[in-house]
Nucleic acid binder design. Structure first.
Ligand SMILES: [Zn+2]
Ligand SMILES: [Zn+2]
Ligand SMILES: [Zn+2]
Ligand SMILES: [Zn+2]
Lengths: 143, 143
DNA sequence: ATGTTATTGATACTGTGTCTCATATGAACG
DNA sequence: CGTTCATATGAGACACAGTATCAATAACAT
C-alpha cells in the first residue's frame, strides 16, 4: 500500500488532501508489519515532521474508517494497525518479525454457519487472528 | 462459575486464599456477560468492599493466568473479561446484552490447517471472536 | 482573490494499567 | 495457640493511550 494510494482513497471519499495527512500516509506506507499509534507518533517526531499527536491519531482513525488500515489486537493487549486491502480478510501475525500476512476468508464460512446454528446466534461480524512464525523467520534467524 | 470454584482453583495452584481475592471472585461470579477491569473496580467501590484498585487488577490478572477468566477484545477496543472454563474455546458475544456464549473449537481446525499450508506459516495460537445477537435478545427486547 | 469550512496542533484532560513500598496477613510450624 | 516469613495488600505515584477543546490555519469551491 503506497502513500499515494492512501491519499487517493481519502480524496475519493471526500476528505481534504492535506500535508499532515500526506505525511502520515507516508509513515504508514513505510512501515513493515504492524505498528501502534504510538509507533507512528514516534516516527513522526524522529523524522522531524511537525505532525501533532492528535493528528496522528485522527488520521489513523480516518484510514481505519475507510478500511485502508485495519486494527488488530495483539496478545499483549496493545492495539496495533496494519495497512491492508479494503476487503474482508484476516491476519496471520508473525510473533518474530511482526509482519502481518493477509488471510482470505478461507473455509471459515461453514464453521461460522455451524456456530450460528448450534447456538441460535445471529452473527453480524467476526474476527480471526492467527499468531505464529512466518516462513522467512523459520529459516533465517529473528530477522 | 461460582466464587468458591474460583477460589478453589486458586488454592489448588498454590496461591493464598485471602479476603480481597474472595471478594473479587464474588464480583466476577456475580457478573453476567463481559466486564472490564474498571467495571469490577466500580462494583467494588459501590459495594463498599475496601478493595484497592491495584488488587482488583492483580486478581483479575491472576484469574486470567489460571484460565478461569478470559480476555476478549471488544470491537470498541476496550479489554473485557468473561468467566469461563479453562479449556480452549472461543466466544460469541452478544452486542445487545453483552453475554458471551462459549464456542467450541468446532470445525476451525481444517480452516487453520489450510491457512498454515497456503501461507507456509507455523501457527502457534489463534483467536476467534464472533459478534452478533443472541436468541434471547432477538426475541425479547434489549433485555 | 475571497469566504466558508474542515483541519491542525498545543494543551488539558480522562482513563487504563503498572510500580513502589510500607503495612498487614495467610499459612506453616512449633 | 503464638511465632515466623514469604505473600499479598492498598495508597499513591507514575507511565501511557486516547480524547476533547479551541484558537489559528489551510483547502478548496466559487
Ligand atoms: Zn516473520
Ligand atoms: Zn472472515
Ligand atoms: Zn468462555
Ligand atoms: Zn444477548
Amino acid at each position: 500500500m503506497t502513500a499515494d494510494a492512501l491519499m487517493a482513497s481519502l480524496e475519493r471519499a471526500g476528505h481534504r488532501v492535506t500535508t499532515p495527512r500526506r505525511v502520515v500516509a507516508q509513515l504508514v506506507a513505510d512501515r513493515e508489519g504492524h505498528f501502534t499509534a504510538g509507533d507512528l507518533v514516534d516516527d513522526a517526531r524522529r523524522r522531524h515532521t511537525g505532525i501533532g499527536r492528535a493528528t496522528a491519531f485522527r488520521t489513523l482513525e480516518l484510514f481505519t474508517e475507510l478500511g485502508l488500515v485495519e486494527r488488530v489486537d495483539l496478545p499483549s493487549g496493545s492495539h496495533a494497525y496494519v495497512a491492508c486491502e479494503p476487503v474482508h480478510h484476516h491476519h496471520a501475525i508473525c510473533t518474530s518479525c511482526g509482519r502481518a500476512l493477509d488471510v482470505a476468508e478461507a473455509g471459515l464460512g461453514p464453521a461460522l454457519d455451524g456456530i450460528a446454528r448450534r447456538l441460535d446466534f445471529q452473527i453480524t461480524s467476526h474476527r480471526l487472528e492467527v499468531f505464529g512464525v512466518c516462513a522467512a523467520c523459520r529459516r533465517g534467524a529473528t530477522r
